[in-house]
Amino acid sequence: MAHLFNPLTIKEMTLKNRIVMSPMCMYSCEKKDGKVTNWHKTHYTSRAVGQVGLIIVEATAVTPQGRISEQDLGIWSDEHVEGLAELVRLVHEQDAKIGIQIAHAGRKSQVSGPIAAPSAVPFSETSKMPEALSADQVAETVHAFVSAAARAKQAGFDVIEIHAAHGYLINQFLSPLANHRDDGYGGDAERRYRFLREIVDGIRRIWDGPLFVRISANEYHPEGNSIEQYVEYARKMKDQGVDLVDCSSGSVVNYPITAYPGYQVPYAEAIKRQAGILTGAVGLITEPAHAEEIVAGGRADLVFLARELLREPYWPRLAAKALGHELAAPKQYTRGW
C-alpha cells in the first residue's frame, strides 16, 4: 500500500488516507448572509466522491466584520448551522471526513464599515486603516471563536481548524510586523501568543475532537516571525491540546516569496520533528510521487492540496493509479473507474 493511502487516526477520528482538501475561499455567498449555497454543496461533495480523505471548508467568519469579503461563509449566527450541517451530511454520505476553518480577517477584511486589528496599522498603503481592538473587544473576539466552534460541533464537523495564518487576525496578533501593542497582548512573543492561547483554551473547553491550527511558519521579513519562533509556538499549541499544525507561510505583509513545488514542506518537517506534533504540508504539491515522498519520508503526516483539487476533483484516483495502489470506486462509478 502506498503510504499516501494509509489511514491516520487522530483522537477518535480515522481518516481513510492522508489526502486533505485545503480550505480555499469560494466567495459564493451572493446574498452576503454567510449561508451555505448550492455551489458549496456541489463543490465540497464532489471532492468527497473523488475520495479525498478530509475536506476542510473554506475560511468561515466568526463575526460579520471578520469576513475577508462580503461573499464569505459565516458561522457567527445560529442561523448558519442548518446549512453547514447539511454540508456535513452530504460529505459523510460519500465516506469522507469534513472539517471547518474558523477565521477572522482582521485588517485584511474588505467588508464595508470599520475593520479591526491588534493595532491601527494598515496591511498596505492602499488598504483601509483598521481600528485597534480594545481589551474588551479582544475578549469578545475570543468568545466569537469559541461560539463558532460550538456551532461547528452542533453542525457535526469532524475537525475544527483555527486560521492563524496568511496575515489574518490571529496571525496579526502573533506577528511583530502587525502587533504594536504594549498591553497583555503584545510587546514580546509570549504576549503576542496570548490571543491564540485564549482561543485554543476556550475551544478546548467545549470541543474534544481533532483541533488543527493553520500557521504562516515564515513571514519572509527580517523583522517578522521565522520558523524558529513557530517551532516554539507549536510546542505551546501541543501543550494546550492542539492535534495538528497546518504549515503554510507568508502574507502578514507584502513581501516577495520564491514559490516552487514543496517550498513549505521544510516548515512542516521542522515543526513535526522539533515540536513533536502532527503536521500538514501544503504548497504547490501536485504530483502523486511528491505527495508520497512527503508522507513516506515522515516529513509531514497529511498532504494538503489546494489548486490541484480545483483542477482535478478526482486527484486521489489519479494518485492511486500512479502509485500502483488499488483504490475502490464509488459504487456508482465502478464501470468507469
Rank of each mutant, 00 (worst) to 15 (best):
Q110V: 08
K108S: 11
T334R: 13
I170N: 11
G186E: 04
E198N: 09
R235Q: 14
E161I: 03
P261E: 05
Q332T: 14
F157C: 04
K238F: 06
V49R: 13
D246S: 09
G297K: 00
L327P: 12
I56S: 01
T334A: 15
V81L: 05
R107T: 11
F304K: 00
I55V: 12
R67N: 10
Q172W: 07
Y193Q: 09
S112M: 12
V303M: 02
L90G: 10
I75G: 01
N254C: 04
Y44S: 06
H92L: 08
I271N: 05
V231N: 04
E86Q: 14
A139L: 10
N6L: 04
A105L: 07
A329F: 06
Q229W: 02
D33A: 08
K236I: 10
N218L: 04
V81R: 04
T45N: 04
E82Q: 15
V242F: 11
A164P: 04
P316Q: 06
Y314F: 14
K236G: 03
G297T: 02
Y220N: 08
R307Q: 10
G99P: 08
E292N: 01
D208I: 01
H180Y: 01
R235N: 02
S127N: 02
G50K: 06
A281I: 00
A281Q: 03
E198I: 08
A300T: 07
A152F: 05
Y260I: 02
E223Y: 03
L327G: 12
K16N: 12
F123G: 01
Q101N: 12
E125S: 09
P130Y: 11
R204M: 03
A59Q: 05
K153H: 06
L323E: 07
E198W: 03
G336C: 08
D183N: 04
A234H: 04
H163G: 07
L305K: 00
A217G: 13
S127Y: 02
I257S: 09
V200N: 10
A189F: 06
R191I: 10
L133R: 12
